[in-house]
């Protein structure tokens, strides 16, 4: 059994700075996403699960429709497993309504001019993201007890909260500590992987142009996100 802990916007430099030992595992580094024009979440996870650069195809859908992408199971490497469990992954089976609500609140935040109401929108935005994170965590730990030959849990909290709160180091450290704890509770071979990292724009967060990876089984060097199909299948099934 191999488990992938897919963490949106997990930033290499913060993992180092906060010294998150479980997120780092035995081997860790940055991924190379330089082949993509922008570090877009939907493009990167779709490319990860298929092992191919899907940028042109996803961007052709347009900014709105892009978020509704559902790559067919047969086109993903998950189909190589007999009984895989994939939780909330963009481009495959993520909760469309939840993520639509996040983007809606983000828009509301930037459209609001009054400082007090702006803070209130951010509070609602954060609450919504943390409530979703708690639900995902619960389902992920249930899945680890199940009879699956592959488990992937996708955690969006560092990305969603980071966009409006990246300047709040205490809050970000709390999130990283929580993610570190999640990884510590997973047994067996595991990969921690992010699509991209995050860099500060004042109090806000923008995507950085590299991702993060770590494993407890071997050094991967500087892999591309599309290499993980091969890595997972090799490690789990010897393919």
């Amino acid at each position: 059994m191999i488990t992938v802990i897919a963490i949106d916007a997990l930033e290499y430099t913060l993992v180092e700075e906060f010294n998150m030992r479980n997120l780092k595992q035995d081997y860790y580094g940055r991924t190379d996403i330089s082949e993509f024009s922008e570090p877009r979440t939907m493009v990167l996870w779709s490319s990860f699960m298929t092992g191919e650069n899907r940028e042109a195809e996803i961007l052709a859908k347009g900014d709105k429709e892009m978020w509704n992408t559902r790559i067919p199971h047969e086109e993903t490497f998950f189909s190589h497993f007999k009984n895989p469990f994939v939780l909330d992954l963009p481009g495959y089976n993520y909760d469309l309504e939840q993520h639509r609500r996040e983007r809606e609140l983000l828009k509301e935040f930037f459209e609001e001019k009054d400082e007090e109401r702006k803070r209130e929108v951010r509070r609602k935005y954060n609450e919504n993201a943390f409530a979703h994170h708690r639900r995902v965590k619960e389902r992920f730990f249930e899945a680890l007890e199940g009879d699956y030959d592959f488990v992937l849990g996708y955690f969006s909290v560092a990305d969603v909260i980071g966009h409006l709160n990246f300047g709040n180091r205490s809050l970000m450290k709390m999130i990283y500590r929580d993610l570190d704890d999640i990884v510590s509770r997973v047994e067996g071979k595991k990969i921690v992987l992010s699509d991209h990292g995050m860099k500060a724009v004042g109090a806000f967060g923008d995507h950085s142009d590299y991702g993060f990876w770590s494993t407890n089984f071997r050094d991967l060097g500087r892999p591309r996100i599309t290499d993980f199909k091969r890595i997972v299948l090799q490690e789990a099934l010897g393919e």
Binding site: M66, R103, H163, D206
Partner: peptide, 24 residues
């Protein structure tokens, strides 16, 4: 830190532009 999180209009515009480019 929540209290100190003041941001300039310039930073807000910059991040809005980036979030648009990323499709958010």
């Amino acid at each position: 830190e929540e209290k100190e999180e003041a941001f300039t209009e310039e930073e807000e515009e910059k991040v809005k532009e980036r979030l648009r480019a990323l499709g958010y």
